[in-house]
Design a protein around this nucleic acid. Structure first.
Lengths: 216, 216
DNA sequence: CCCATAACAGCACGATCGTGCTATTTTTCG
DNA sequence: CGAAAAATAGCACGATCGTGCTGTTATGGG
């Protein structure tokens, strides 16, 4: 790898960490140059504009997300195991050391939801991709017979996202230690409700509670 | 009301709208002065610092929230009706015209979750208050016999919050028209699951699906 | 109506912002 | 190794940032 690519990636890595805590817009060229130890103009030469830098930061985050979350899960067997891996990897990603401020996409979402432009467009597109990946994994689990046939992939993907948003909110802002536990309990209940009746039923009571928020 | 208070409130109202779309930190004194039509220094004289301005903006938002969401709901009868009013008013508040960028607290939450200081402290305290109000309304519904006795107030408040976070995310960033519908369906399912068995059962099928994500 | 006081404007300050242009240094390759 | 090319630094620019100080204007109670 050439020297240029090397420092460029180092810059993007530092910008990623900074953006996750302070937000994409709050990452200034000057401060970023100081943390990676080079001049403002030297750093700026790698990116034509600040907007492009933000785009590249998001692209870097997506690349990491695919490598750390999606790809390992796609190597799991089709069905609930893959849905589970997607959720658990996603959860782990939100607590990654490279993202001291939590999931960058969630932070960027509320920052960019009223700021039109290519950065927002890219974020929206990547979020749609991710939701598509999630719901397709659910549909596969339906096809495999592990989930009931009336389980709606989009709705379940939505519910999974909802769990992670709540976890992010309650653990990061309110610092609730119970948030993680609550998230996983909600996840398990979603999985149980989606399973085909007569499948791997839970040993506890209330194993016959069908059709929870699952059709649309 | 004195002239000072008058312009001060006008400034805070404008700052509230701006903060809901661009974020608290992105509201600059100069731009704010331009939108309300006065000089930077004249505006600044009302607030000792920018941090104090942000605090006052949050205080204004809390006052509105209590007046528009909490107070009307507390005039509803104890029980599910009050919980329902809290949720519906909360939902309407997130789509208020005074908040073109959606719920300010949700936006501020992801902006401030890594920025220690009095602004964050105040946001956290007000969020705790709101969660307390929600869970107490649920506990009252339990005491009144409308909700089952094993319904956990904190968990249900958490689940309600989760619905609103997902609605905010999917409707604002991804512009999904189905988000609103999904939110209310999820809410109705939560209510139904919480109701005492034999209570006002739904006329549709699957009315016997007890104990969904309700104990802890 | 007058005058004390509150409200506001004008102006300036150092700092930092994003972004160019021009050297100088460093890497890369024949 | 030497030359072409890439990478980085130095410097400067206009703009805007938050925040003071010093006047001028408007308000409101006696």
């Amino acid at each position: 790898m050439s020297k240029g690519q090397q420092t460029r990636e180092a810059v993007l890595e530092a910008a990623l960490a900074a953006a996750s805590t302070s937000g994409l817009a709050a990452v200034s060229i000057g401060e970023l140059a100081r943390t990676v130890g080079m001049s403002k103009s030297g750093l700026f030469a790698h990116f034509e504009s600040k907007e492009n830098l933000q785009l590249e930061v998001l692209r870097t985050a997506v690349a990491h997300f695919i490598a750390d979350v999606v790809a390992p899960a796609l190597r799991k067997p089709r069905g609930e195991a893959r849905v589970r891996a997607l959720f658990e990897n996603w959860f782990a990603w939100s607590s990654n050391a490279a993202l001291p401020g939590g999931c960058l996409f969630i932070a960027a979402a509320s920052e960019l939801d009223d700021q039109p432009g290519p950065v927002r467009d890219y974020l929206v597109a990547s979020q749609r991709d991710w939701l598509g990946t999630l719901s397709q994994a659910v549909r596969i689990a339906v096809d495999e017979g592990e989930f009931r046939k009336d389980v709606d992939g989009e709705q379940l993907a939505h519910d999974l996202y909802s769990i992670l948003l709540a976890y992010h909110h309650f653990s990061r802002l309110l610092q609730m230690p119970a948030a993680r536990e609550r998230a996983f309990r909600s996840f398990e209940q979603l999985m149980q409700s989606a399973r085909a009746t007569g499948g791997k039923a839970r040993s506890t009571a209330s194993s016959r509670s069908p059709k929870r928020r699952l059709r649309r």
